[in-house]
């Protein structure tokens, strides 16, 4: 129990970093109504770009900007594949994700991982200072929520929401739905790139596989957040926050099951199961409600 409690801050820190990624997933999955699988690659790209930038002597803030832009670029590719090449969104994301594996290797000069020593460089977050990580992570969360809250309150942001909600209506009202999808996927992947950059600093290295299964973790965070806070958080900003909190809950649960003896190798299977169950719950609930319909009683 003591070891579990002592591992709590680490779980929260990691949860916040992945929660930032979950906000990116929220944009595509909830607002654009597209499951964008690019993020598995983009997360690693963010990490790789940051490590390469920092180790080559770049300022950490600038390196973060580069990671963000690299993520945006990856999203742009998926957006173009989807809207200009006519490839279904899921497949477009898978194609970009696959290509990014090679890209990420190239970025890291051909090696599968690259160290980033906190003692040598000035970093924003690190395993060595978990309190700081939580604080910096929280600041990132609030800044991103603030910007997104503003953006989705603008004319362009509104038109993005309409695009995800009803394309026919959007086009009938003069909204360029293709352009909006690209914009949405770009912003989403930019945020994912940022969170990948944060995780690379936190763990002290970037790895070509660090984004594997990111979409599942992102979805888990979004869904857990929705189940846990959906009833109380109605406001858009609070919904984004609930995705982040979902990420934190997810990592606390993961830490717990690992302490209870789950083999770390089985973690991905566990994640997939959690997401499958949470995605199925609303469907099962509806099925159960349908069964409850009683036949009309014959009047005597």
């Amino acid at each position: 129990m003591i070891t579990f409690l002592s591992s709590m801050p680490g779980a929260v820190a990691q949860g916040i970093i992945w929660g930032i990624m979950a906000m990116g997933v929220y944009l595509t999955y909830k607002i654009l109504d597209v499951a964008d699988l690019t993020v598995d690659g983009t997360f690693g790209t963010g990490g790789a770009v940051l490590v390469v930038c920092v180790t080559s002597g770049m300022n950490i803030a600038l390196a973060m900007v580069c990671a963000f832009l690299a993520g945006c670029l990856a999203g742009f590719v998926t957006g173009i594949l989807h809207t200009q090449f006519g490839i279904p969104a899921i497949l477009a994301g898978i194609l970009t994700q696959l290509a990014l594996y090679s890209v990420n290797l190239r970025v890291m000069g051909g090696s599968a991982n690259m160290p980033l020593t906190v003692t040598k460089y000035t970093l924003l977050v690190s395993l060595r200072d978990i309190k700081m990580t939580i604080l910096i992570g929280a600041i990132f969360v609030f800044i991103i929520i603030g910007i997104l809250y503003w953006f989705f309150g603008t004319e362009l942001g509104h038109s993005l929401r309409a695009t995800g909600c009803n394309e026919s209506m959007a086009r009938a009202n003069g909204i360029n739905t293709n352009m909006n999808k690209v914009i949405g996927i770009v912003i989403s992947n930019g945020i994912v790139g940022l969170s990948g950059a944060l995780l690379a600093q936190y763990q002290g290295f970037s790895d070509v596989n660090m984004g594997r299964g990111a979409i599942v973790i992102g979805l888990a965070a979004v869904i857990i957040g929705q189940v846990a806070f959906g009833k109380i958080f109605k406001n858009f900003a609070m919904r984004l926050l609930s995705a982040v909190l979902g990420g934190v809950i997810y990592y606390i649960v993961i830490t717990l099951v690992l302490r209870m003896g789950l083999n770390a190798n089985d973690l991905k299977m566990f994640s997939a199961l959690v997401v499958a169950v949470f995605l199925a719950l609303p469907y099962w609930k509806r099925k159960r409600d349908e069964k409850k319909i009683k036949p009309v009683k014959e009047e005597a």
């Binding site: 953006f151 309150g153 603008t154 004319e155 362009l156 942001g157 509104h158 038109s159 309409a162 959007a170 009202n173 003069g174 909204i175």
Partner: peptide
């Protein structure tokens, strides 16, 4: 209604 009132205009970063 706000979306419809801007039909045919470019969507800017002004408040919706």
């Amino acid at each position: 209604l706000a979306l419809a009132s801007r039909r045919g205009q470019s969507r800017t970063l002004r408040w919706a």
